[in-house]
């Protein structure tokens, strides 16, 4: 860690003013601090070297930390902690996928600190990104190359990757948000705006250093999920190397509206642990729409979801495991007792 200036602000307006017009994203010399579970970690590793850290934990929690549920749907304040939302009785009952995606992430200590807004911006666990002694990392040093391509890439992505970066988006909650067509609410220098969650993250392409569509100084204030008939029959299945405190090798977020005879009215599918960004599997959704959900159709949908997979030396198994995970999640959703 290197010396930095610490500022504490008590309103979003003050935060945005303090941030100024600096550069966007991770390379910025200014960074917001919420739970700190990613930022402080990466500062200790010398990966992020902000000169100014703007603490937004004193922002009004009644507005920014609140969980609101009603007939129209759900709104989650961005400063709400992962643990609060995971334990919320209404979310557990009506939005099980969301509660599960939060509860299966990290450790209790981290969930108590980490906020939802920070969670979705969590940066990749690619070991070559997190260790500055590697000279090649296009995300850290644009144009320097990608050590993961010929390095140890077991944990890396097979979907949405490019020749410049194969880093995996590590989050779980983000899969729930993209599956449920959440809107992300933003506040910035030019006022408030809303963005579909699926437009928040940018696949690496040729510029993996640019990870989101956020403008300089923009703050995530909340997430909104509209009520829908598939929310209660929803789940998040996470497959990993150990049973807790570990990132997904593969995960699937499923929301299912099932009619008579196992016919799929609507299905929402997102995949984690296998992609460069929160990943919506729309082709798999289309493959199941109006069909009877059984092992055969689930397998066919899973094949579709991974048709464009681009694996490397050590992560080839993620294609097979990702499919199996999706099949298991779909069958599990179909048999949920409501």
């Amino acid at each position: 860690m290197r010396p930095f200036t610490y500022e504490r602000v008590d309103s979003a307006t003050a935060a945005i003013a303090a941030f100024g017009a600096g550069a966007v994203g991770a390379a910025s010399e200014r960074q917001y601090l919420a739970g700190g579970t990613t930022l402080i970690d990466l500062m200790k590793l010398d990966v992020m070297r902000p000169q100014t850290v703007i603490d937004i934990n004193a922002l009004d929690r009644t507005a920014l930390g609140r969980v609101e549920t009603n007939d129209q749907g759900l709104r989650l304040g961005a400063l709400a902690h992962m643990s609060e939302v995971a334990d919320h009785p209404v979310i557990k009952r009506d939005y099980p996928m969301i509660a599960q995606s939060l509860e299966l992430a990290a450790s209790p200590q981290i969930r108590n600190m980490a906020t939802l807004g920070g969670n979705v911006l969590q940066r990749t666990r690619c070991p070559y990104f997190r260790d500055v002694s590697y000279a090649e990392c296009n995300k850290r040093i644009p144009g320097s190359g990608c050590a993961a391509l010929d390095g140890f890439n077991r944990s890396h992505a097979v979907l949405g990757v490019s020749d410049a970066c194969i880093a995996t988006y590590p989050g779980d909650f983000g899969q729930a948000l993209i599956a449920l067509d959440a809107m992300v609410e933003l506040r910035g220098r030019n006022g408030d705006r809303k963005l579909p969650f699926g437009a928040l993250h940018r696949p690496p392409g040729g510029n993996p250093e640019i990870e989101t569509a956020l403008l300089p100084g923009e703050i995530i204030t909340g997430f909104a999920i509209a009520a829908a008939p598939w929310l209660r029959r929803s789940l998040y299945l996470k497959i990993r190397d150990r049973q807790s405190y570990e990132f997904a090798l593969a995960s699937a977020a499923i929301a299912l509206d099932m009619g008579k005879n196992q016919i799929v009215q609507e299905v929402r599918i997102a995949l984690g642990g296998v992609a460069s960004v929160p990943w919506r599997a729309r082709s798999a959704e289309r493959a199941l729409q109006g069909r009877r959900l059984n092992e055969q159709t689930a397998r066919a949908a899973a094949d579709t979801a991974f048709a464009d997979a681009n694996p490397h030396e050590h992560n080839l198994f993620k294609v097979g495991l990702g499919k199996r995970t999706l099949v298991r999640a779909l069958l599990q959703a179909a048999t949920m007792e409501l």
Binding site: P127, F152, D241, Q243
Partner: peptide, 25 residues
């Protein structure tokens, strides 16, 4: 301990990535 064979370097040199069982295991 995973080794980057091209570079002969240890990749998962931390307790988050060097896996040992947690209580749940």
């Amino acid at each position: 301990t995973e080794i980057d064979k091209a570079r002969a370097r240890y990749v998962n040199d931390n307790l988050a990535d060097y896996l040992v069982p947690v209580n749940a295991d």
